[in-house]
């Protein structure tokens, strides 16, 4: 139980799942690791259960839309993990194709992911496979579109109420 540096965290991950981490961005403001989408569920389990890592708290899930990337339109899902015992943190990124953004749900690993994933689905349109109830959470149930996609246009009116007035 000790605070680990980012290098040690990656070492632990690679020791158990050598294929999972596809990219390490250590020169940014926060060090970020990029995990392959298909490996993410296993990585999440490992992060939580390995006592050296002990990431028991999922702080935040962020979906970011990048429609104009050189390597193809992408959606990034960013997970901010935190350890209440070890006091270290980790930012994990999963890159998904924008046309069909699918990633495994981690609500079984962290219960808080339930609502966070629903929110990300609602606003960014990422589909979390295996989520028990992936429906809209913030917008109205019959809302159309995912508002935080960069090409989103708000509806002119919704149920007879004028929406765009300028």
């Amino acid at each position: 139980m000790a605070r680990l540096e980012i290098g040690q965290i990656i070492a632990v991950l690679k020791e158990k799942l050598p294929e999972a981490v596809s990219e390490e961005v250590l020169d940014g403001v926060d060090p970020v690791i990029v995990v392959k989408a298909e490996q993410w569920a296993a990585v999440a389990e490992l992060c939580r259960d390995d006592s050296r890592l002990g990431f028991d708290l999922l702080s935040c899930i962020t979906g970011v839309d990048y429609p104009e990337r050189e390597e193809g339109a992408e959606i990034e899902v960013i997970y901010n993990l935190d350890s209440t015992a070890n006091l270290h943190e980790l930012t994990v990124k999963v890159k998904l194709p924008r046309s069909d953004p699918r990633v495994a749900s981690v609500e079984g690993t962290w219960a808080t992911a339930d609502w966070h994933e629903r929110e990300t689905y609602d606003l960014v349109g990422v589909i979390f496979e295996g989520h028990h109830n992936l429906v809209r959470i913030l917008c109205a149930d019959d809302w159309v579109g995912h508002p935080l996609r960069k090409d989103y246009e708000p509806p002119d009116s919704f149920h007879g109420i004028k929406n765009v007035i300028y």
């Binding site: 940014g28 403001v29 926060d30 970020v32 702080s59 935040c60 962020t62 970011v64 839309d65 960013i78 901010n80 943190e89 930012t91 935080l148």
Partner: peptide, 29 residues
């Protein structure tokens, strides 16, 4: 350009902001 997550202790718990910048004066996300 870059991104960061910063958290502070609010009255109700962890207030965190994940900010993505693309180098302009408007946040990307």
């Amino acid at each position: 350009a870059g991104e960061t997550y910063k958290k502070v202790e609010g009255a109700r718990g962890e207030v965190g902001f994940y900010v993505v910048s693309d180098g302009t004066n408007i946040p990307y996300r």
